[in-house]
Design a binder for these strands. Sequence first.
DNA 1: CGTACTTTTGAATCGCATCAAATCTGGTGG
DNA 2: CCACCAGATTTGATGCGATTCAAAAGTACG
Lengths: 210, 210
Amino acid sequence: MKRSVSALDWPTLCGRQPAAALIPQSLREHAKFFEAQTRETLFRTGDPVRHIHLVISGEARLIRMDRHGGEIILQRSRGGFIAEASLDSRAYHCDGIASEPTAILALPASAFRSALDADPAFCKAWQMQLAKEVRKLRAQCERLSLHNAADRIIHYIESEGTDGVLILSQSRKSWAAELGLSHESLYRTLRRMQDDGLLFVDGTRLATKP
Amino acid sequence: MKRSVSALDWPTLCGRQPAAALIPQSLREHAKFFEAQTRETLFRTGDPVRHIHLVISGEARLIRMDRHGGEIILQRSRGGFIAEASLDSRAYHCDGIASEPTAILALPASAFRSALDADPAFCKAWQMQLAKEVRKLRAQCERLSLHNAADRIIHYIESEGTDGVLILSQSRKSWAAELGLSHESLYRTLRRMQDDGLLFVDGTRLATKP
DNA sequence: CGTACTTTTGAATCGCATCAAATCTGGTGG
DNA sequence: CCACCAGATTTGATGCGATTCAAAAGTACG
């Protein structure tokens, strides 16, 4: 299943996922590549943190269950790292799953820490990665603080899209979960916003202007 | 108003705020100390990032206004850094204000970046600081994803308190804003939870068990 | 004391969650 | 190719809970 990437080729990997380019040689040697199926578990809450995962293609999610079995999406990574902050934790605080067929690079946590110590450029890149995640999470908190569905939708398009246009990279149902809404509410609100001329929808393309 | 900390004494500062101990000598020399009044602005959205602020005592907040003038609290720092992720941004994305009389250490951003490059221990400490903020924000997102007031209150006590007990360090009104609730909702829900024996309140002490 | 703010309660309203069910979709295997 | 299935999309009806507006009582502070 898992195999060393010495068999694969790094230029191709870096082409597919820019974050791969940041990884120094010392760490590359320890990378393991594998492919996960839909709903396959990468790690579970409580598992010791042995690897840092880089999503090459597909999508991985960080999730927790609320008290009544509802699934809460804490991170959704399509290309790039997932559960970055686990690097200095003993164990995971959430579950990690692939939400579609996904290609993953697993980097041993210990080698990862050594590489950060040894390579200042990698260290700085990792810091920027964490800072970016902080900003993304603040935007998510701001969005979840909005008290109605339409405002959250607009906020999402403005902050995750480009120039008022968003190409939705997931089903509407799971988008609803990310917005903290029931999927019925999302469908109804999208409909109403279109009727009111506040939103222009064409397949997966959502725009706030015509 | 602002003054160099050479006039002050670092051992005392470090005693009051552990994060001060992380700051290397090269950066300490450029630190400016000042005290902000309630509602005083530290920086505004769009301002260039010239300093990183460390809260020594009191409280500073990162806030944004929503479309209807409502105030959204993005970070609340009582001791420790505020707006950490601004270090690698040109300009602030939020406003920073003191929410009570607050003592602040302002560290020039350029000297801060140099110190990170030069001092591996400081660099590592900063990384852990960012990772901690990521985990805190994930908890906040998880909380805001809960669909009723009581669950958010319990979640807050469990994740911000110790062993099911929380000493509230702010007014209930501003706690309500942090929970994404109207203050009336929070008051009523606290009352109901007490009546139902789900919560035990004594002044600022909130506990989930008697 | 007076002012500003928080805390508290009341009543009316609205939006979202929930339960239910029909339709549509893509993918699988016979 | 078609039947079938799982999951996504869509619409409807209902009830609850949160927001909102309003106002009174409590509290801190100069």
